[in-house]
Design a protein around this nucleic acid. Structure first.
Length: 426
RNA sequence: GUGGGAAUAGCUCAACUGGCAGAGCACCGGACUGUGGCUCCGACGGUUGCGGGUUCGAUUCCCGUUUCCCACCCCA
């Protein structure tokens, strides 16, 4: 048997109902903040991600699906392509390619699959889905304003509330500008030097490869040491500190609760200043439901003009996982099940179903070979509110037996009144 | 990429120390010819993830492999 490959999966009904529920809530909420949809290719030049996400990140160095695409002719050179591992780089590429700065401030969102070759586990797949949004534009459009950071974060709080996700946590930090981070890194290395030998093996490795990651350590014995390490907050320059304070002021003003966490570091190289993460307890080790931050230098590093931006990515798989509601409750059920009864009745049933569907009713249709009992069972299983019997007697009278499956009430309704009759009691 | 656990019918799970592979639910049919849910009866359903090995005999023990789960790493 041919099976879905490692780390990929089929999402089947009724679970797809939950996905649709999430996505339509997302579109509703984002619309209220004047975000518009963008769709970018699923594969891009490898170079885009190498430069955008950062050569040194895990994503680029070991998790990308990359292949050499062949040239069109013998003499033509192929090029290295990569399935997108995240959305921001592609969106910024499109921003540069289509000179979107002409439009001033761009508020864009994208929903779609991303690809990373990681070891799968719960809430982590090799093809996974992200809901991504970006605010990006020339500095003159106010794209670097703390107001945008706060707006984006507040929008996310609204979305989670709207979806009925309770118990989320917002963690907030500023990772400063690149200059701040260089100084901080240097200070961190210096501070680690005398104490690193006493720390866990993971931390000893991190101290060399990526000192920031020491803050992620979960070993209790290392905690006293980590407590005394310098923090990024001590290295923010004046503009960065001001910016971060304003983000916090606005969030307080609109009533979005947050927890300052100066250990929060994000895994992609391009992040600057505001960094945030929403977590949810029900997700196990993969508790990050969404993460985001500011990337003021990304456009330039991709060869574009200055275009400060802030964005986030929601892990849609994880978001769906943390929903309380069962898929059942958000699924749309048929309004009516049309049950043809007896030879030749398929034709009349099809005509009736067509009429009812044109009235925006959800209509399921049986088969004339079914015995009535079977039609009733099928209608009940589909969750239909009504069953409409199309038999010889009904066709002759041009009035049809309409039965409410919940109450058992049954009436004979003339053809012309059917749609209205079904609609008015929904 | 590293470490641990698991894999048996569509689903949830049994099967004693190595001895005929089972149950519930679901599905299909009947009781019941144009009126569902309940009940009863029946049928269907399996290369025990895959490949080797040990054995008279392997779902069971051993080795390999694949996938999932948990943790690490990292991230959404």
């Amino acid at each position: 048997m041919i099976k879905a490959i490692r780390g990929t999966r089929d999402i089947l009904p009724p679970e797809t109902g939950l996905w649709n529920f999430v996505e339509s809530a997302v579109r509703d909420v984002f619309r209220a903040y004047n975000f518009q949809e963008i769709r970018t290719p699923i594969f891009e030049s490898t170079e885009l991600f190498a430069r955008g996400v950062g050569e040194e990140t895990d994503i680029v160095s070991k998790e990308m699906y990359t292949w050499e695409d062949r040239g069109r002719a013998e003499s033509d050179k192929g090029q290295s392509l990569t399935l997108r591992p995240e959305a921001t780089a592609g969106i910024v590429r499109a921003y540069i390619e289509h000179k979107l700065w002409d439009r001033g401030l761009n508020k864009l969102y994208l929903i779609g699959p991303m690809f990373r070759r990681e070891r799968p586990q719960k809430g982590r797949y090799r093809q996974f889905y992200q809901i991504d949004a970006e605010v990006i534009g020339p500095p003159s459009s106010g794209s670097d304003s703390a107001a945008r950071d706060a707006e984006v974060i507040e929008m996310l709080a609204t979305l989670l509330d709207r979806l009925g996700i309770t118990g989320w946590n917002l963690q907030l930090n500023s990772v400063g500008c690149p200059n701040d981070r260089d100084q901080f890194n240097a200070a961190l290395r210096k501070a680690l030097e005398p104490v690193v030998a006493k720390m866990c093996v993971d931390c000893q490795r991190r101290a060399v490869t990526n000192p920031l990651r020491v803050f992620d350590c979960k070993v209790p014995e290392d905690e006293p040491i980590i407590e005394k390490l310098p923090r990024i907050s001590q290295f923010l320059d004046e503009p960065c500190r001001k910016h971060f304070e304003e983000v916090q002021e606005i969030l307080k003003s609109v009533g979005v609760p947050f927890i300052l966490n100066d250990r929060l570091v994000r895994g992609l190289d391009y992040y600057t200043r505001t960094a945030f993460e929403f977590t949810h307890g029900a997700l196990g080790a993969q508790n990050a439901i969404l993460g985001g931050g500011r990337y003021d230098g990304l456009s330039e590093s991709l060869g574009g003009p200055p275009a400060p931006g802030i964005g986030f990515a929601i892990g849609e798989d994880r978001l769906v996982m943390s929903l309380q509601e069962a898929a059942e409750s958000v699924m749309k059920k048929p309004d009516v099940y049309v049950a043809p009864l007896g030879a030749g009745m398929n034709r009349d049933a099809a005509r009736l179903a067509r009429e009812l569907r044109r009235h925006d009713l959800i209509v399921d249709l049986g088969d004339e070979n079914f015995r009535l009992k079977k039609s009733f069972e099928a209608a009940t299983r589909a969750g239909a509110k009504y069953i409409l019997i199309v038999g010889e007697n009904e066709v002759k009278a041009d009035a049809f037996a309409l039965k409410n499956l919940a109450t058992g009430a049954q009436v004979s309704v003339p053809r012309g009144e059917l749609a209205q009759r079904i609609q008015e009691t929904l």
